[in-house]
Design a protein around this nucleic acid. Sequence first.
DNA 1: AAGTAGGTCAACCGCTTGGAG
DNA 2: CCTCCAAGCGGTTGACCTACT
Length: 303
Amino acid sequence: MGRAPCCDKANVKRGPWSPEEDAKLKEYIEKSGTGGNWIALPQKAGLKRCGKSCRLRWLNYLRPNIKHGEFSDDEDRIICSLFATIGSRWSIIAAQLPGRTDNDIKNYWNTKLKKKLMGVFPPPQRKSLQISSVLQASSSSPSSSTSTSSYQGSNSSYYSTPASSFTGLEPISFTSSLLSSNYSTNAAAQLLHAHHSYQVKDHNLLFFGSDQAASCSSSDGSSSSLNEYGAAADLQNCFYNGVEGNQRFMISNGGDFNTWIENPLDYYGPEEIKRLISTGSCNNNSLYFDEHKTEETLQTQYF
DNA sequence: AAGTAGGTCAACCGCTTGGAG
DNA sequence: CCTCCAAGCGGTTGACCTACT
């Protein structure tokens, strides 16, 4: 037995709204307000529509100060940053963008912005995924990592994003000094980790992950990065940074493991990266690896 | 010019949340 | 507390439009 319908489907009009219906709804709400009761509103307004439908039409289209049309680069940045930190909480994201509706932002993300971001990642490089060495690495200097793809120096090949327009993944200013200085990656990781929430806000940082998973890895082996958060924990501090026009990623658990990588695809298959983008942040636990997934299965997963 | 594929976006569906009784 | 119900929310659908063959 299903849930009772919110209205009598047989007696309500569905589908696109006509200009006349729009006018009726707008006029009624401007004159009388919603009265805090959307269910009763259509009848009062003389509309043969479901209350839900009226609410949606008002909120997404008729409400004053609704902004339609192209999203600005700034709006793109805000959406990307927020999506990376809170996931698909469209209403919260919409609250940060005056005039935009959650529906608008959701559509924009699903149809344009997501693809824009996906375009940043080039076709997969099929390298072996040495996850165990990654997990065990306690690199205090970039070159000490056992990983073949940790930061090696400025002559490495990085992704680069078009300088002319926003790709959704842009350099963050203050990390440039960190990356080009003598900071160990560990120190940089700690610093970044400690301040990530500010960076999201102030430095357009695209940040995957949260404090929630910050204790996933510890040197005493009490837990590992492949715990219940799985790849989410592993990716929790996957930063996308810019160094003089180049980009590289940092993978860190905020504690004893961290490393710079040139290419996230060295560690995560293209599908994982795409999945991370398409499913949202780690916060909502939408990204899982099997807790018991072994190195072997990880190694073979993408190849 | 016609057919097809892909993209966009308004609207719907159904689950979750929170307040009232 | 518990139940009920309306609002809110995110995912999905489908009509329409445009580009491509």
